[in-house]
């Protein structure tokens, strides 16, 4: 429900109907601050796992833990 409201707010704002304001206040972000809500909780583990995929696939990049370019031969 909150997602629908958020999307509706963005659409209305872009069409000039409503002035867009931040709708999640800093004091409402306690849950988001929990370590299990980190996009990469343990960066070294995630980078190496992504590296294993990058060396065995043609695809690369666009991931949070991607290491940028590579000399994949």
């Amino acid at each position: 429900m909150r997602i629908t409201a958020a999307v509706a707010l963005i659409v209305f704002s872009l069409t000039g109907c409503v002035r867009l304001e931040p709708w999640v206040k800093p004091y409402e972000r306690e849950v988001l601050a929990d370590p299990i809500m980190s996009i990469s909780r343990d960066p070294m583990l995630d980078r190496y796992r992504q590296h294993v995929f990058d060396t065995r696939e043609a695809a690369r990049g666009g991931t949070v833990s991607a290491g940028g370019g590579c000399g994949c031969n």
Partner: peptide
Amino acid sequence: LGLTQVLTPTLLATVDYEAI
């Protein structure tokens, strides 16, 4: 280019684009 967006107090979204 990347974007991280707080959508609700319990939901995050990310969009990432990379060209090499």
